[in-house]
Structure formats: structure tokens, C-alpha cells
């Protein structure tokens, strides 16, 4: 499969702290890749590197054949990378439908001036984006709540809305940062179904950070494990489960069979 993203020997340093070191990763178009690792391993930092929130202090990243080192976050989004955040970052005081509409921003043809003049063309485009937003929201079961403020949604809906907003940018790669955090087992199962469906319907690659093993293991054919800012393992769920380094990273010196039997 075609390569979508490649990071080569990426690292970042915060003062004396080496948050990431020598990270080389490839993601193929349409792949569903998992990323796990203990707290503070550097997973979120890696997302922030990819999306231009932080700059790598070493190494290079290519996305869809573009080097990312000089690009700003919004330009990286234009290339087709979208993300959700570990701590939900919705536009809290905007309605559900507005949270989605605003994500069409880059795809809109009308200028800002056109929304003041409001000609026929603007009107037609505005209506068509509203229709697209409705389709998306209906698909994710959020249409009924379209006029509610994002901050008033239940937690699970907020997580879903964040995914919808990211999808509205029509990404080729979707980065999900712990989408299952704070969910109960039923919600987690629904989320697994949702991610699987998104992956198929929208034909995109997904990089999934997740603490919950059952979620990553059931979704991702390939998993990367970070610990103290370094890749310590990479492989199928089966390989990861049995990798002694991974077991140690997660459980210190606990008995091996405690994890493998799970």
C-alpha cells in the first residue's frame, strides 16, 4: 500500500526532558495503526509533532510526500491530517452544527466578503454545506442535538462530535487521542464499532492512541509501543501481548502470565 506518513528519527526535547527520541514510523494509506504506552510515554507529544503544534528538535516528517518541518498546524490540516484531543477541545459555546460547519472552512469557495454581500452563489454554497453537515451529523446520531451548545452535550457525545468535526475536514489521516478515555464498557464497545465504521466508510488511515488494551487490540492489526519517549516494540496484537519489554513497561516486574492470559 502507498505510504501516507513517514517520520524519520524524530525527537523533541523540553528543556532537559527528552520527551521523544528517534521515532521512525510509517503509516500506509488506509491503515489502522495503534499506539500505546504508559502515562507520559510521549504519545500525545507525538501527535503534537505531527500536527505542527510542537516542532521536532531532530528528525523529519513527511506526510503525503510533503515535508512538514516548515508547515503550520492549519497548513498541515489542509494536507489532510485531522485529530481529536485527549482533553476534548470542542468549540464549547458554539452549537453542535456550527462545530461541524466551521470545519468545512478550507473547502468553502465563497470568500468572507461574500458572506456579507450574500449573493445567490453564496446562498447556494451555504445551503449545500448545511446539507453536508446534516448528513454527517445524522450518520453519527447527533442531528437531533444540532442546536445544543457543544458544552452541554453528554461526555460520550462530545467525544463523538470531536470525531465528526475532524472528519468534516476530509482527512486522509485521522489521529485519535484516547477516544475511549472515561467511557464505560458499553460505550467502549460502541466506540469500537464506530471507529471501525469510520475507517471503512471514510477510507482513511487512523492512528489511534489508547490506554484501553481491549480497544486497541480489537481494532488495530499493527501496534506501536512507546515508553520513555522511545519505540520499544512494534507488531501485531499477539506479538505485543507477548513482548517481554512491553509487559515490563506496563507492569514493572510483575509475572508475565498476568497479561498474556488476558
Amino acid at each position: 500500500m502507498a505510504e501516507l506518513l513517514r517520520s524519520e528519527h524524530c525527537g523533541i526535547q523540553f528543556g532537559g526532558l527528552r520527551a521523544l527520541h528517534d521515532i521512525s514510523i510509517r503509516i500506509a494509506a488506509g491503515e489502522l495503526l495503534g499506539m500505546i504506552g504508559p502515562n507520559g510515554a510521549g504519545k500525545t507529544t507525538f501527535f503534537n509533532l505531527l500536527t505542527g503544534v510542537y516542532r521536532a528538535t531532530s528528525g523529519v516528517i513527511f506526510f503525503d510526500e510533503h515535508g512538514l518541518e516548515k508547515l503550520k498546524t492549519f497548513q498541515i490540516s489542509h494536507l489532510g491530517m485531522a485529530r481529536t484531543f485527549q482533553n476534548i477541545r470542542l468549540f464549547a459555546d458554539l452549537t453542535v452544527v456550527d462545530n461541524v460547519l466551521v470545519a468545512f472552512h478550507y473547502q468553502m469557495k465563497s470568500s468572507l466578503g461574500a458572506s456579507v454581500v450574500r449573493g445567490e452563489k453564496w446562498r447556494a454554497e451555504e445551503i449545500s454545506w448545511h446539507d453536508t453537515a446534516r448528513e454527517l451529523l445524522q450518520f453519527f446520531g447527533l442531528w437531533e442535538r444540532r442546536h445544543e451548545l457543544a458544552k452541554n452535550l453528554p461526555y460520550g457525545d462530545q467525544r463523538r462530535l470531536e470525531i465528526v468535526r475532524a472528519l468534516a475536514t476530509r482527512p486522509k489521516l485521522l489521529l485519535l487521542d484516547e477516544p475511549a478515555a472515561g467511557m464505560n464498557p458499553t460505550e467502549k464497545n460502541q466506540l469500537i464499532g464506530l471507529i471501525r465504521m469510520v475507517h471503512q466508510k471514510f477510507q482513511l488511515a487512523i492512528l489511534l492512541i489508547e490506554h484501553d488494551m481491549s480497544v486497541v487490540m480489537s481494532l488495530c492489526p499493527r501496534i506501536i509501543v512507546l515508553d520513555y519517549g522511545e519505540i520499544i516494540a512494534e507488531g501485531t496484537p499477539q506479538e505485543i501481548r507477548n513482548n517481554p519489554k512491553v509487559i515490563e513497561a506496563y507492569l514493572g516486574t510483575a509475572p508475565v502470565n498476568y497479561v498474556t492470559s488476558n
Partner: peptide, 16 residues
């Protein structure tokens, strides 16, 4: 409005 609400999130969906 998106920038007022959350500048990082706004940038992440392609807003300059």
C-alpha cells in the same frame, strides 16, 4: 468564533 473558543482546535481544522 472558533478562534475565540479554542485557537489550537481551530488551527487543527485548517483555520489560519
Amino acid at each position: 468564533l472558533a478562534i475565540r473558543e479554542d485557537e489550537i482546535a481551530a488551527s487543527s481544522i485548517g483555520i489560519d
